[in-house]
Amino acid sequence: MYIYLPIAEVSVNLIILFGMGGAVGILSGMFGVGGGFLMTPLLIFYGIPPIVAVATEANQIVASSISGVVAHWRRRAVDFKMGTVLLIGGVIGSFLGIELFALLKNVGQIDLMISLAYVLLLGSIGSLIFVEGISAIINKRNDKIAQIRKRKERTWVYSLPFRVRFKKSGLYISVIPPITIGIFVGILASIMGVGGGFVMVPAMIYLLRMPTNIVIGTSLYQIIFVTSLVTILHAYENQTVDVMLAIILMGGGVVGAQIGAFLGHRLKAEQLRFLLGVLILAVCAKMLIELIAKPQNIYVIADVLL
């Protein structure tokens, strides 16, 4: 069953796309990750133009993050003040990212930039998760309890100016680190079509020392607004948001996330992390091969848009 995507201008198999949305949905349900960093590469592998994949995936993340944040909000596990500070950075980052995107698009290097960014990001995140997953499994075998790092340790982050009190997180810190994190995540969102939770969450825990239980809710809250903005900016600047594709992915994602949440309870956390690490590294490897291996077509041919 084929469907013509009006913006991507390709005919795609509806069942395969829905399945891809579902598969990534399952993973995000299982691992509690947004899934944008897997979905965008998959779309590119499938033949969707990278610039459309990035913009449309941002649109899908809006939906999946909203459905996710509601549960956290009900448990009062969202620090709105911290989220808003992160969001201010996110807005700045989105505008910067879109400008960079347009610049690279004009010189014809945007596809390369997207691939490079993915290889770097997936490579580093994947290796971290993979190593952590393995060591957790080994530790468990040896009956060792994983050592918990001291959380209240003070870092250089606490010596910066413009300190603000965040009641919910129990912090009194400078706004510079959260804004910087926000900017970085905003740039990632606009160039890569990801929510950026996998960068933001560790940064919030290890850098800002936020309590773990409110970290995910707060990051989702920021992601909703950043990806909403990124979607609008891409639609406005580049006309690359394919609403038809987004709706298919949202549909698949919803179904998948329910299955994933169910499966997630049945597998052990360490095994999950190990699996996720393997998966991310596999996608990274495929992207890397495409960059290094001699391309099938030496010439890149594209329409000139007037």
């Binding site: 939906a63 993050s65 459905s67 609008i232 949202m250």
Partner: peptide
């Protein structure tokens, strides 16, 4: 869809986001 995306890009983008919000909220 193609015409809207190219002729009213801002409105089109906002509608895409609204669709996503509705989808997300209804799933929740």
């Amino acid at each position: 869809i193609y015409t809207q995306a190219n002729e009213r890009p801002l409105l089109y983008g906002i509608i895409c986001v609204v669709i996503a919000w509705i989808a997300g909220l209804s799933v929740a």
